[in-house]
Structure formats: structure tokens, C-alpha cells
Design a protein around this nucleic acid. Structure first.
Length: 865
RNA sequence: GGGCGAUUAGCUCAGGGGGAGAGCGCUUCCCUGACACGGAAGAGGUCAGAGGUUCAAAUCCUCUAUCGCCCACCA
């Protein structure tokens, strides 16, 4: 074996072997209880980014462990068609050739996107393989696969039949660049510096005027009223009269509406029902006309300013008003502006005919499912955000004016005016009107990408057909995702899953944070601080990246990924690698059994490490079951490095040298290494698989059984010995006594505790020889106390007496600090009365132990003179 | 305007009522026959601040400050 761990040399070969062995298929555990995770499907044209790497590291750790525990574990991979995002990518490519999608036409364009998908769709799945994600690729899905499209249509039609899908004229958020409607959630708001223009609207009759304030002056072209608060005394006499809309000349009424805040601006609002959601609501209440003043690209239409883009029009309108003497003032005004989440263009509230899902009836059950514990969030606090979001939902605009996606299964009868219902929503394509037999035209729009994503936990299994997989794997075992798509995705899966499957899609919803750069800032391409996980894999390996992500990902908190962590994880891998080399050398060509094989009759060191192995395994399982992977792998990391490698391997060296103990030592080394490799496997699958090959020599660790070492008591004396060795080393270090200089340790203590075994260990680990003494030694010696054992070292010629005095004085002071606190507690009647008995007993024991320790230190000081 | 989170060692972060933890960095010693991507021994914190609850507070409560994030119809 190579003396250095080289992740990239060992990682690449394993994936194919796992796949060929079929270990990622749930059928590998045919009798196991099902456990399924569906991947949060990445955009098909996307690239793996650090957020995916984190998400996949967590999911894979969960799934690999479940598989080893005997579950029929399944991780369903797949990708999302990502409507607008993907269409934008392909349009950009066309744009480079000077073409638009309209030059191609719908059919050719969609074919072009499919072509793009065929060309680049495999990239992200290859990247997943490189990270070692244990997906069952025989069950890979794409949101626009035929069967998933069938599911989408079934859901849409069913909701329509239930009256939960409807079509209507509403103000929606419109992206003039993507030329499509967006859902509320697809708009990102951020504060921008703008202007508040005050414009005078003259009364039609008489001399007066009212002044309105607006940030979007151009929308005045579409005003059909001005509104004041009904109780505003300033304008009480004006309600019911009309003003003449400047520039346009239209007479519009002054109306009273509660929505108006009398304290904002002048207390008068211009009302533009076609271009503002509030104004639309006011318009509905007062029966106002809506005047649309822009086309779908945001250019002005109509008699005035036609052809100007909305921002140019804003300037032009203000100039024209100024020329007319009606622009009262323009103030700087910082306010929140909505942007398209796909292209950052400023969105326009826009009146248009769209399809909506009425969400209330499907939302309440989704709220109840969390309230009654059918599904729970980890960490729990996310449920409050979920409730708040769900309780305030408004109907979901699901139609998109793009070409890439699931076309809305609605057909319009061309002869609708002749007594036919205008709209036919159908599970099958229509070529003629089912009522009158006349020609029909299909709706041009497609559905929101998230509509199909919402069905993912069951559509991947072939719903609406009742397939064996659907019956086996729904509900899924757990959902793991970032909070950034909790509303886009998790909330909607809950709605759809419960509505169509009758059960919540999963019992546990694990929400992890974002990956931030080492400087704590959000990783993003635009900031230029994004780290490509594939670059990290090339430099450090997939396993180190995975371990670093898992260790860094405390539940619900963002992850600041510093490359130092990844480097640290690789150093750990190197340590494991070399520890394994040592164990293998010690095993002398024999193999460890794949399971069990825990030796019964062993030496103290073996008994100790097996005792710890059982303890740590149990704790590790508890942490994993609670999704506390950073704690779990932190525990394992420290156990392996500090206890197995630094202590046990060193102690085993002694055991291997003696014929009497070599066999049980070898056996223990083998099973302990084997079990910690199993525990580590969910985080570092390649490294552990490689080492399994050498250690066990048969089968795959990925398909091995999760360890369950039997609990056993801690053997006496081992921790005391470790403490004593520490004291000797510390003594050397503080007095500059080289490790090469042998020390004679005069040990006085309970005879039973000092096994012969100590001699060999002290010699090997502390270069100290042992001489038992019957009495305590005084002047000229220093005393090392470890548990019940007192040991003495003759100081003559060995050390600097002053330095030793310093050391002892500091040690006494340290003990006094703790002792003082403990004694104060025991001196407090309240503590004795109210603290639990075991706490008091523990405190007493502490004081007793510390007092003894202090006394012995003090006597040493006295002995030094 | 609401809500949530964070503030702990030089750095990045765990912990969550009973003697302050990890990794990295730093200091000293050691290339001991698995590993110098290593070993050993150390230094280094008024747990943001102020009140409160408690026998006991880094931990629970209230307020304050700073920094993030989410939500909201700021014309």
C-alpha cells in the first residue's frame, strides 16, 4: 500500500463496482423495511455547486447508513426541467447566433431545448457520481419524462374538476424580459434608491387640484381614479367630484377607500388598476375601468409616449408634467423593488389572464400534518416559518408564458361564442371540441416548474398508476433540503402529497443551511467567491470534501466552508489510511471477519478499546438518528484519532510483541478498525471501501452490516495508566527531560491495580521503568498522582528544582480555584436543600478527591524545601 | 413594520442549568520499526452588554447593542 493517502487514486474505481454489484438498489436488502429519499432535483442544465454537495453529503450519509442497517434503502436521483432557467440558457445560446426563440418557432425551439438537455443533462449526474452519491440510477427520473408529465396532467385536471384550478384576470408579477407571469414567491425584493414624484391633478370643475405621490410616474397614463381615505377631513368635500388626468385629459373620479393611508405623502393615491395590485383591488371595489398602458415587454402602448420603454417613459412623463407646470416636486425615495428571481429584471405588476390554483383547501391539511406531528421539521423552529407562510398564502399563479415545460392541458373551442363552453380541460389531447366537434386550440402556456416539483415524492414512482414502488416508498423516509427552497418546494409537496396521496410525503423534514465562503459571505458567482466542488474534489478528493461538509453542517446553520477544513479532513483520511497500514501489518496476512468476531478473553487495553467502541457506537447512532451529523462525525473523528490511533494502536504494539497476547491483540485491532470504518463509511465511502478490501478481503463495506458491538464494562486500571503516562510525559516536557532519557518510576499503590501489563506499557509509551516501593517516598522525589496510584521520581540530577516548584505551585493554585468553588457550593444551605442528591454527592466526591490531590501536591512542595 | 437566527480561544465554529470544547493557527520537544498530511506537552476565553429567575446561568427570561436572514399591499 502507498504510504500516503491519495484520494484521487482510489476514489474513481469504486463507483462502477458499487453500481455493478447493485448495492445502490433497494433490492440489495430484499426483506428490509423500505427507506427512501428523493433527491431535490437539480436543474438539468445546471452544474453541481457547493449547496448540492452539502445536500448530497447529508443525504448520502443517511442513505448509506440505513442501507447498512438492513433497510431497503433507496435514493431516487433525477433532474428538474427548470422551465424559465433552462429556457433562458438556450435562448442565450441562440442569442449568440443572433436568433430568438421566435425565429425558430415553438416546436423547433422546444426540440432545441431537448437537444440541449440530451447534451448537457448527464453532466450533473456524472458530477454526483464523482462525489460517491449512492443513487439508484435505474430509477432516475426527469420532471418531463412521459410518466411524470402524465402525473402533472392528472393533478391539474383533477384540481380543475374539484374547482381548485381556475382561470382569471388578475394582477400578477410580470417579467418583461422573460415575458412571463411569475408567482409571488418568484419575485425578490430589494431596496433601491428611487424618486417620489408629486403630481398635481386639477379638478375638472373649479380651480382646485389634488396632489398625488408616485414612484412610477409613467403609470399615471393608466389612472382611472384618485383615492382618499373616507375619514380624511382634508378631502371630505372632494369625494365624488372628478379630476382631469394631466397629459391624457381623461376625467377620473375622486373616490374614498379605506386602503389609503392618510399619513403617507399627501393622502391622495392615484389608482392604476391595470398596473398595481392594490389599485386593482380598489378598482374591483369601486367598479373602475382598467387601462393597460404597457405591452408584455414593458413598452408603452396607446396614444402618448408609445414605444418608450417604461423607464424612459417615466422620465418623459415627468418632463412633460414639468412643462405643463403640474410636477409639484420630486423627492429622493428609497423603497423596495421587485425583481425576477431568474433574471433580476424589475418585475411589473400586470393585469393578465392566468391560471391559478386555489390554495386554501389544500393548505390547511398540510398545516395540520405538521401540527399533529405526522411531519416534523428538524430543527423544529422551521415549523413556525412554515406555519406563517402557509397561513398567509394567496392563490398560486401557475401559468407561464414560456415554451419549455408542461403545456397546460386546456383547449379553447374556436366557436365558443356559438354556445359551447369556452374551455375544455382534458387528460387526453383534444383535436376537436368535445361538445360541438368544432376546431380547438390548446392553451399556449406551460405550468410553473414547481408544479411538477410538488409531485416529485410520488410522481417518481409512477403515480397515478399504483406501482409496487409507489406502494413501497410512499411516504418517503426523510426530506433533506436547504431552507431556500422550503416555500418553493417543501410546502407544495406537503400540499400535493396530502391531497393526492392522503398522507404527508415524509415524516421528517431536515432543513440545512447555505454554504458560505470562508469569509462568511454567501457563495455566488457574481461575488466571485464561489468554490466549485469539483475543483475541491480534484485537489483534495471527494471523501475529504464530504467529511468536511458533514462536520461543518450543524443542524439549521449555514456552513462556512474554509478549505482548511477540507485539508483537515484529508489529513484525517491520511491518518486512517496509515493506521490501517499498521493494523494490516500487525495482522500478518490474516483478515478480519465482515461482522462480529469480538474477542472475549483479552488484555486490559483490548477490553478498554472494545468498551469504548461500544459506547461510541451507541452515542454515534443516537446522534445520527437525530440528524446531528456534525456532532456524530465529530465524535467519531475524535474517537478514532485520539483513542483508537493515539492510544490503542500504541498500546497494541506491546501486545503484538508477546506471543501470549499477539493473537487477541491482532483480533481486536482487526474488529475495532473494521467497525470504525463501517461507522465512517457514510461520510467517506471510497476510503473505507478501499481499506475494507485489504482488511476483510471479501464483499463490499457498502453492503456490509452496521456494527453493533456488545456493551462491556471498562476494565480497571487502564484509564489510571493513561493518566500516569500523561503525568510522566508532562513531567518530562516541563523539565526538559528528553524522551530518550529513561526514567525510573517508583510506584506505590494498591498492589492489585498495578498489573504486570503496566510495566511494558510504561516502558513503551513513556520510556519509564517501574519499581514497586512499599512506602511513600519523601525528600528529593517528586510525586505523580494518577487515580489511586502514587508514583515517585528521584529528582537528583534530573531536573531544575525551581522549575518543579513553579509547576507545583501552579497546580495547587489551579486546584484551589476549582476547590474553592466546590466548597462554597457545599457551604451553601440552599444547595444542600435543593440540589438533587446525586449532584450533591458528586460535589462531595469532587471535594474529597481534590483535597487529597491538593494535599499531596502541597506535601511535594514541602519536600522540595 | 413584523418574525427568526447569530454574538464562546488569534481564525472558523460546536455546546446549551452543576469543574469552558473541537479544528486550524501559535509555543516547546521528538524524523520512536503506520503516519512529519505525524507524535508528545503547552499557552490562550469576564461565553457581546445590563438586569432578572435559580442553591447554581455561557446555558432559562427581559431589555440593549452589533451583524445576518425571512416575511409584509412603504402609493
Amino acid at each position: 500500500m502507498n504510504p500516503t493517502y491519495e484520494p484521487n487514486e482510489i476514489e474513481t474505481a469504486w463507483y462502477d463496482r458499487w453500481e455493478q454489484a447493485g448495492v445502490f438498489r433497494p433490492e440489495v436488502n430484499p426483506y428490509g423495511e423500505p427507506f427512501c429519499v428523493v433527491i431535490p432535483p437539480p436543474n438539468v442544465t445546471g452544474q453541481l455547486h457547493m449547496g448540492h454537495a452539502l445536500n448530497h453529503a447529508i443525504i448520502d450519509a443517511i442513505v448509506r447508513r440505513k442501507r447498512m442497517q438492513g433497510y431497503a434503502a433507496l435514493w431516487v436521483p433525477g433532474t428538474d426541467h427548470a422551465g424559465i432557467a433552462t429556457q433562458n440558457v438556450v435562448e442565450r445560446e441562440l442569442g449568440a447566433e443572433g436568433l430568438s426563440r421566435h425565429d425558430l418557432g415553438r416546436e423547433a425551439f422546444v426540440e432545441q431545448v431537448w437537444e440541449w438537455k440530451r447534451r448537457s443533462g448527464a453532466r450533473i449526474t456524472q458530477q454526483m457520481r464523482r462525489l460517491g452519491s449512492s443513487c439508484d440510477w435505474t430509477r432516475e427520473r426527469f420532471t418531463m419524462d412521459d410518466r411524470l408529465s402524465t402525473a402533472v396532467r392528472e393533478v391539474f385536471v383533477t384540481l380543475y374538476e374539484e374547482g381548485l384550478v381556475y382561470r382569471g384576470d388578475r394582477i400578477i408579477n410580470w417579467c418583461p424580459r422573460c415575458t412571463t407571469a411569475l408567482a409571488e414567491i418568484e419575485v425578490e425584493y430589494w431596496d433601491e434608491d428611487g424618486e417620489l414624484a408629486h403630481i398635481a391633478y386639477p379638478l375638472t370643475e373649479g380651480d382646485g387640484q389634488v396632489v398625488v405621490a408616485t414612484t412610477r410616474a409613467e403609470t399615471m397614463l393608466g389612472d382611472t381614479a384618485v383615492a382618499v381615505h373616507p375619514d380624511d377631513p382634508r378631502y371630505a368635500g372632494l369625494v365624488g367630484r372628478t379630476v382631469t388626468l394631466p397629459l391624457v385629459g381623461r376625467q377620473i373620479p375622486i373616490i374614498a377607500d379605506d386602503h389609503v393611508d392618510p399619513d403617507f405623502g399627501t393622502g391622495v393615491v392615484k389608482v392604476t388598476p391595470a398596473h398595481d395590485p392594490n389599485d386593482f383591488a380598489i378598482g374591483e371595489r369601486h367598479g373602475l375601468e382598467s387601462v393597460t398602458i404597457m405591452d408584455d415587454h414593458g413598452f408603452i402602448i396607446g396614444d402618448l409616449f408609445a414605444g418608450l420603454d417604461r423607464f424612459d417613459a417615466r422620465r418623459a412623463v415627468k418632463e412633460a408634467l414639468e412643462a405643463a407646470g403640474l410636477l409639484v416636486s420630486v423627492e429622493d425615495h428609497r423603497h423596495s423593488v421587485g425583481h425576477c428571481y431568474r433574471c433580476d429584471t424589475v418585475v411589473e405588476p400586470y393585469l393578465s389572464l392566468q391560471w391559478f390554483v386555489e390554495v386554501r383547501p389544500i393548505t390547511d391539511p398540510a398545516i395540520d400534518a405538521v401540527r399533529n406531528g405526522e411531519s416534523r421539521f428538524v430543527p423544529e423552529r422551521w415549523q413556525n416559518s412554515y406555519f406563517h407562510w402557509m397561513e398567509n398564502l394567496r392563490d398560486w399563479c401557475v401559468s407561464r408564458q414560456i415554451w419549455w415545460g408542461h403545456r397546460i392541458p386546456a383547449w379553447y373551442c374556436d366557436q365558443a361564442s356559438e354556445g359551447c363552453p369556452a374551455v375544455h380541460v382534458s387528460r387526453t389531447d383534444l383535436s376537436a371540441c368535445p361538445t360541438c366537434g368544432g376546431p380547438v386550440t390548446q392553451d399556449e402556456d406551460v405550468l410553473d416548474t414547481w408544479f411538477s416539483s410538488a409531485l416529485w415524492p410520488f410522481s417518481v414512482f409512477g403515480w397515478p398508476d399504483t406501482t409496487p414502488d409507489l406502494e413501497t416508498f410512499y411516504p418517503n423516509g426523510v426530506m433533506v433540503t436547504g431552507f431556500d427552497i422550503m416555500y418553493f418546494w417543501v410546502a407544495r409537496m406537503m400540499q400535493m402529497g396530502i391531497h393526492f396521496m392522503g398522507k404527508a410525503p415524509y415524516p421528517d423534514i431536515v432543513i440545512h443551511g447555505l454554504v458560505r465562503a470562508g469569509d462568511g459571505r454567501k457563495m455566488s458567482k457574481s461575488l466571485g467567491n464561489a468554490i466549485d466542488p469539483l475543483d475541491v474534489v480534484d485537489e483534495y478528493g471527494a471523501d475529504p470534501l464530504r467529511l468536511a461538509l458533514l462536520q461543518a453542517a450543524a443542524p439549521g446553520h449555514d456552513v462556512s466552508l474554509d478549505m482548511e477544513w477540507v485539508a483537515g479532513a484529508r489529513r484525517f483520511g491520511n491518518k486512517v489510511w496509515n493506521a490501517a497500514r499498521f493494523v494490516l501489518a500487525g495482522m500478518d496476512g490474516t483478515h478480519a471477519p465482515p461482522d462480529g468476531g469480538y474477542p472475549g478473553d483479552v488484555g486490559p487495553a483490548e477490553a478498554w478499546i472494545l468498551h469504548r467502541l461500544a459506547e461510541v457506537t451507541a452515542r454515534f447512532d443516537t446522534l445520527c438518528d437525530g440528524y446531528r451529523f456534525s456532532d456524530a462525525f465529530g465524535l467519531l473523528y475524535n474517537f478514532m484519532w485520539a483513542e483508537v490511533f493515539d492510544w490503542y494502536l500504541e498500546m497494541a504494539k506491546v501486545g503484538l510483541r508477546s506471543d501470549a497476547t499477539a493473537a487477541s491483540t491482532r483480533q481486536t485491532l482487526g474488529v475495532v478498525l473494521r467497525d470504525v470504518l463501517k461507522l465512517l463509511h457514510p461520510a467517506m465511502p471510497h476510503l473505507t471501501e478501499e481499506l475494507w478490501g485489504h482488511l476483510v478481503g471479501d464483499g463490499l463495506i457498502a453492503a456490509s452490516r452496521w456494527p453493533d458491538p456488545p456493551a462491556r464494562p471498562a476494565p480497571p486500571g487502564v484509564e489510571t495508566l493513561q493518566e500516569l503516562i500523561g503525568k510522566v510525559r508532562s513531567f518530562r516536557s516541563q523539565h526538559g527531560v528528553s524522551p530518550r532519557v529513561p526514567i525510573e518510576l517508583l510506584i506505590h499503590g494498591p498492589s492489585g491495580t498495578i498489573a504486570d501489563w503496566w510495566h511494558g506499557q510504561l516502558d513503551a509509551l513513556a520510556n519509564a521503568s517501574v519499581t514497586p516501593v512499599a512506602d511513600e517516598l519523601g525528600a528529593g522525589h517528586t510525586r505523580l498522582v494518577a487515580g489511586p496510584v502514587h508514583s515517585f521520581i528521584a529528582l537528583a540530577g534530573l531536573i531544575d528544582i525551581d522549575a518543579e516548584r513553579d509547576r507545583l505551585t501552579r497546580a495547587v493554585a489551579e486546584i484551589d480555584k476549582v476547590l474553592g468553588r466546590a466548597e462554597a457550593k457545599l457551604g451553601n444551605p440552599g444547595f444542600l436543600d435543593k440540589a438533587p442528591d446525586d449532584v450533591v454527592a458528586k460535589e462531595r466526591a469532587k471535594v474529597a478527591e481534590l483535597s487529597e490531590r491538593r494535599a499531596s501536591l502541597q506535601s511535594q512542595l514541602n519536600e522540595l524545601g
